Computed example of a mutant assay.
Amino acid sequence: MTHQGVVAACSDVATMIDRGVRLARRNVDTLFASILLPLLMMALFVYVFGGAIDTGTEYINYVVPGILLLTTGYGASSTAMVVADDMNSGMIDRLRSLPIHSFAVLTGHVVASVARNAASTAIVILASVAMGFRPDAGALDWLAAIGLLLLYVVALSWLAAALGVIAKSVESASTLSFFMLFLPYLSSAFVRPESMPAWLRPVSEHQPITLVIETVRSLLIGTPLENNAQLALAWCCGLLLFAIVLATSLYRRRTGR
């Protein structure tokens, strides 16, 4: 690609990012839901179920990392619906008439999703502190945890974009992205895997969401890290690469660009 081509591609990406962010600002109900639902879940587990769950530590300290992953799942699932709306409302047909790189369209939605997730995650962290969450992490630990969460949400947002491309409606996009909201419940987000039935425990212990949660939990409250960080990074990087290739190839196949 020539220098002019690179400049044009960057300009297209910036334009689509601006559009995606403006759409996210207008869609207040989606932003509100992505914040409210994780807060309600955290309050439910801490105040209703927390007293009956033994995790070896204060339950709120245990559950907050899982709630953070749940928050990103809610935010990413809305990306699938926004992309599906573009694909099925005629907006993509209008964009196809313009000299815009296909990669830029999906990138705009992904960056808007990451920005929306960053805002909702920050609010959830502040609320958890108000509810009694007391991490003992230093500045570097916080940066590492935030970096891992950022990598995870970018990968998840690209996967959601791919689901939005193949969805035939906004409703079907919501259904396809349901697993993003369901998988954290089969992880170590809310209870220790040792408390699960023998047939379910390996699923909980070895799925990628558990690796990310345990790494964040270790960084924030000092639980044993073991080799969770390396595995979590490998899973997130692999998912990101797979999701980008999948989303862009599906988009080009459906739009002919």
Rank of each mutant, 00 (worst) to 15 (best):
Y152F: 14
L126P: 00
Y62A: 08
M81Y: 02
V129P: 02
P65V: 04
A112T: 01
L126A: 15
T121G: 13
L36A: 14
L39F: 10
L95M: 07
D85T: 09
G66N: 09
A167T: 08
P38Y: 06
L163Y: 01
I146V: 15
A104L: 11
L36C: 04
A84C: 04
T121C: 13
L126Y: 03
V64W: 08
T55D: 09
A161G: 04
L140S: 15
L70E: 05
I35C: 15
R94M: 10
S102R: 05
G90D: 14
A119Y: 08
A76M: 05
L159H: 02
A118E: 03
A127F: 13
L98G: 03
Y62S: 08
I67L: 14
T121R: 07
S77M: 13
S169Y: 09
F49K: 02
A119T: 11
A104V: 06
D93K: 07
Y62C: 07
L68M: 10
I92C: 04
S102G: 05
M81H: 01
V64A: 09
G147M: 06
S77P: 05
R96M: 12
W158G: 01
T30G: 08
K168T: 11
L31G: 05
I146L: 15
V153G: 00
V111P: 00
R96Q: 05
L37R: 01
L163N: 00
F103R: 15
F45M: 08
L69I: 11
L98R: 14
A161P: 07
V170F: 11
L150A: 15
V46Q: 09
L95G: 00
I166N: 00
S78K: 11
I123C: 11
T72S: 08
H109F: 04
S128I: 03
A52G: 08
V48L: 11
S128V: 06
G132H: 05
A76E: 01
V165G: 02
T55N: 11
G50N: 11
D136C: 11
G164C: 06
G164A: 04
L44A: 13
M91I: 10
R116A: 14
A76W: 01
G73A: 10
V46A: 14
M42G: 03
I123Y: 03
V48G: 00
T107L: 12
I60Q: 10
L106S: 06
A104G: 10
D54F: 07
N88V: 05
S102L: 09
S89I: 03
G66F: 07
I92V: 15
G90K: 12
N117T: 07
V153M: 07
R134Q: 15
I92Q: 12
M91V: 12
P135N: 07
L151N: 08
F32Y: 12
A112N: 01
V110Y: 03
S128R: 05
L40F: 13
A130L: 14
F45E: 02
A122S: 12
I123W: 04
Y152H: 12
Y47V: 04
P99R: 04
V170Y: 09
V48H: 02
S113T: 00
A144H: 10
Y47K: 10
D141Q: 15
A118L: 13
G164D: 01
R116W: 06
A104M: 10
R134Y: 11
Y62R: 09
V170A: 11
A76V: 01
T30N: 10
I100E: 06
I67Y: 12
